[in-house]
């Protein structure tokens, strides 16, 4: 059920264009706030961590802007807050990434972020529309989304959760990896729902419903 108190907050930490995410929500009838103000983040019912760019820079920005604790606090509020991580925003949830050496992540989810294996993946980055294999079709985010729907991916690294059971959908691009994870109030996707046409907009709608 939608309550009139839905407050969608997109975390602004200087990584990529956040307006595209906002525009998608506008299209489905919501008006999110883009901010790095922790007072506003605190009030969010739906908190979104997007991001395009490098893992290391992203962690540095989150740290410099004092956003790490507010994000962790919000996520720990299971009853009240739904959290969405998109692309880099998904990867940051994990413990570490091997992008440019090893960089520590937020560590909210157990596991690491690794690069596609250059020995058998001929083209990196993984750019374009790939179908996903939905493992948890019962979760709200996948309502009205058919198995094997196509979503837009753009990445060279992917998340490897320690606990395979949190993988909500997988994707096969030479290697099989986690396209989406779901744990408690966290949903995160490697693809860009804001660039994935109707399937993406449906997913965003499901997230706020």
């Amino acid at each position: 059920m939608l309550s009139k108190d839905t407050i969608i907050v997109i975390i602004d930490y200087g990584m990529g264009n956040l307006n595209n995410v906002k525009n998608s929500f506008n299209k489905i009838g919501f008006n999110p706030i883009i901010t790095n103000d922790f007072h506003k983040i605190e009030k969010a019912t739906h908190l979104i961590l997007p991001g395009v760019g490098g893992f290391k820079d992203a962690m540095k920005e989150l740290k410099n802007k004092d956003l790490i604790q507010p994000i962790k606090d919000a996520i720990s509020n299971h009853e009240f807050v739904s959290f969405l991580g998109i692309c880099l925003g998904m990867q940051l949830l994990f413990e570490s990434s091997e992008e440019f050496g090893v960089t520590e992540g937020l560590g909210i989810l157990k596991g690491k972020v690794i690069k596609f294996n250059e020995n058998f993946v001929p083209i990196i980055p993984h750019i374009g529309w790939n179908d996903i294999n939905i493992k948890k079709n019962e979760i709200k985010e996948f309502k009205n989304i058919k198995n094997n729907s196509f979503f837009y991916f753009l990445h060279s690294y992917y998340c490897k959760p320690d606990d395979g059971a949190i993988t909500a959908a997988s994707c096969c691009y030479y290697e099989t990896f986690a396209a989406c994870v779901k744990k408690d109030n966290i949903f995160a996707c490697q693809f860009h729902p804001e660039k994935s046409h109707d399937a993406g907009l449906t997913l965003l709608k499901n997230f706020v419903s």
């Binding site: 307006n19 595209n20 525009n23 998608s24 506008n26 299209k27 837009y152 753009l154 860009h192 804001e194 660039k195 994935s196 046409h197 993406g200 907009l201």
Partner: peptide, 11 residues
Amino acid sequence: VKEISKNIFIP
């Protein structure tokens, strides 16, 4: 570009 990005949800 701003106008396009408000209306197009593909890359």
